[in-house]
Computed example of a mutant assay.
Amino acid sequence: MTNNANSPDATIFQLGGDLPVRRIGYGTMRLADGPGDPAGPEARIWTAPADRAAAVRLLRTAAEAGGTLFDTADAYALGAGEELLAEALHPYGDGVAVATKIGVVRPSPTEWVPLGHPAYLRQQAELSLRRLRTERIDLLYLHRLDENVPVAEQVGALRQLQEEGKVRHVGLSEVTVAQLDEAESVTPIAAVQNLYNLATRDHEAVVEHTAGRGIAFVPFFPIAMGGHAGPDGPVAEVAREVGATPSQTALAWLLHRAPHVLPIPGTNSAAHLLENLGALDVRLTEEQFARLGAVGDAAS
């Protein structure tokens, strides 16, 4: 396992080699949660926020606090997530990078169905451009690979959008090393967004592979700590040692894991948002990093 030696520029990553972003982004998925909706992996992400003004304020607070990477998807609340981001932050300045995703259809609140027909992907990108009110998307992910369409055709659609000047960088989500290699034969991949956190580390091989190629690894659900989140658990223990909260400590472990790791925690609380960004200032020793790493080793 490689890890990140702390350095003066450890909080910044050059996405795609030319787009500097802070290494803790903001995942906007939670803003689509309705009252009483399930959270985490079971969240429906189906409706626009009931308190739109509060969501706009939260997004602006994130930008004002130094957040630069904002992550959304056309599948979040059927496009309402992208519209909300534009309402809050457009016109986007040099300090804001917008990432969105295409390639999943939502026929109902509980269904997320990959659809990778190239014509559909290009149409969805056009709709994303309109909702985001921009002429070029900084980072466009293929939300999921469609097993019924060749990878080269799906990624080729995103490459065409790049060639047309509508997409700056291409990303993939929930992929293996083999799928990433296949996609890279079509166009450079700037980021991979997979499920990864202290307690869930199935994608270690992808973390290692992307590190060697300068590709950002963007963990979603980055704060999950499983059964080790209690007040007497190892996360809380290290948190007390470094003067941070358990959530900040879990994020700090990811930041220390490797310099290309960019967590995107989501929240609908301004206090939690600022807490998450504060993880950029938390420093772990190698011993603390290893002790936390044993959390995932025990869970596997």
Rank of each mutant, 00 (worst) to 15 (best):
Q288C: 01
P38T: 03
P219S: 13
G214T: 01
V235E: 11
Q123K: 07
R213P: 02
A294Q: 15
D297K: 14
G156N: 08
R22C: 11
V177W: 10
V177R: 11
A152D: 13
G266N: 06
D74Q: 15
E163I: 02
E275T: 08
T2M: 14
R130D: 06
G16K: 04
E153T: 03
Y26L: 05
A73K: 10
P38C: 04
E275W: 09
D71T: 14
E204V: 12
V242H: 05
G93W: 07
T267A: 06
H203F: 12
R131T: 05
E163H: 07
V218R: 04
T61N: 07
R57D: 09
A88Y: 11
E164C: 02
L292W: 09
R213T: 01
G81M: 05
H260A: 02
P41T: 13
Q154H: 02
S300F: 12
S185K: 15
A183C: 02
A224L: 11
R257V: 00
F217E: 02
S108W: 11
E135D: 12
A65N: 09
V21I: 14
R130Q: 14
L161H: 03
P222K: 05
P259G: 02
S300V: 09
L78V: 10
G171D: 06
T2I: 14
Y92A: 09
E208M: 10
V192L: 02
A236P: 13
V261P: 04
R44N: 14
F13L: 06
Q179R: 04
L132D: 06
F13G: 04
Q248R: 03
V192E: 00
E87R: 14
G79S: 12
R122F: 00
T134D: 03
R201K: 02
L284Q: 03
L85C: 01
R201H: 06
R22F: 12
V206I: 11
G95Y: 05
R122H: 00
N3W: 15
H203R: 12
R240E: 14
V207L: 10
P150T: 02
V149P: 00
S128G: 10
R201W: 01
I264F: 01
P49I: 04
V177I: 09
D37Y: 13
T68N: 10
L19K: 08
V238P: 06
D94R: 13
P38H: 07
V98K: 07
F221T: 09
Y141W: 08
D232E: 15
I223Q: 13
A205R: 14
R30G: 15
L255S: 03
S108K: 05
L284M: 06
F289N: 07
L255I: 02
A50K: 11
Y76L: 01
P231I: 07
A5S: 15
L58W: 11
L273P: 10
A236Y: 12
A77H: 06
G27I: 01
I12L: 08
A39G: 14
A50M: 08
T134N: 00
V206A: 13
G278R: 08
P263F: 04
T267Q: 10
W112A: 15
I102T: 14
L129S: 01
T245P: 06
E184G: 09
